[in-house]
Write a protein that binds this DNA or RNA. Structure first.
Lengths: 147, 147
DNA sequence: TTGATTATATCAAGGCATTGGCATATCTTG
DNA sequence: CAAGATATGCCAATGCCTTGATATAATCAA
């Protein structure tokens, strides 16, 4: 492992992440949303999650953030009636987080700007390079998770 | 551009960045530091910056964050006497940010844990893949910057 | 049933990140 | 010299992120 290479790698990650949040949030600011909320809603909008919803625990493991942090994001989304917390009939301890009809509508409307963001941001990378990048990020995430 | 590929890419970026900050900060927590402070100090510790220091403007452009945010990070570092703000003799408006001797000492001591963090986190990636990854991140950052 | 575990919620403190606006000092330009 | 641009600092509001501690309810196991 070369220090310099690793240093550049994590520094680029730092820069890219900051820019993703800053500019990504601009793309969905008409909805009063942020990139983090977009990540949560995106998770809940997946076919698998849309049926039953996702427990807080599942969301935490999926998004890789703390319970207290997710809770705050969910509070803001709940206040806007985009998501709801319902009791899991199979386990009284669990709360299932689900998109409300309003949330589904907002998500559908956000897909346009999100698509634009993706297209603009990835202009410099071919489809093949994009796949390469997300696979490398997959392995980086796995490495970081094991720490 | 495939929506799904882009979506995975940015989601991995989000996850990796969160993990980098969470676990990276653990590696330097003995010093009471964070990954962001480590980024700032790392920038100031470069040979180019060590001579004259860096202006706030330069640091902002290098780290890609807002003036107000950087200012707060610098305030915390200054309070611990790791950095100092000195007037630029060539331009009275400019403040040059420099590592203090104390800051240099701390940085030197942090290099061990940082090296460990890099090694552990990048275990799953070959040197070649690490280079590939940081180059792709370079292009991603450039794309994000132009938005 | 009692006791331990699990899932969630809440409170608190601290740090990082953004935007927007206002103020001050300095340099540059006309 | 006056006007405009530049560099920085400060205030405020908002949201995201962490750790740590405490509390409550429900499930599971001895």
């Amino acid at each position: 492992m070369t220090f310099d290479v690793a240093n550049r790698l994590f520094f680029r990650l730092y820069q890219s992440s900051n820019l993703m949040h800053k500019n990504g949030t601009r793309y969905v600011s008409d909805f009063g949303a942020t990139t983090q909320q977009w990540a949560v809603i995106g998770a809940l909008a997946r076919p698998i999650a849309r049926e039953k919803g996702m427990s807080v625990k599942d969301l935490i493991e999926f998004l890789l953030l703390s319970r207290q942090n997710l809770s705050a994001v969910l509070d803001r989304l709940e206040a806007r009636h985009w998501v709801e917390r319902v009791k899991d009939p199979d386990d009284g301890r669990t709360r299932l987080i689900r998109l409300t009809p309003e949330g589904e509508t907002q998500w559908a409307a956000m897909l346009g700007p999100i698509q634009s963001f993706y297209t603009e941001a990835l202009k410099g990378l071919s489809e093949e390079e994009q796949v390469q990048l997300y696979r490398l990020l997959d392995r980086l995430r796995d490495g970081l998770e094991r720490l």
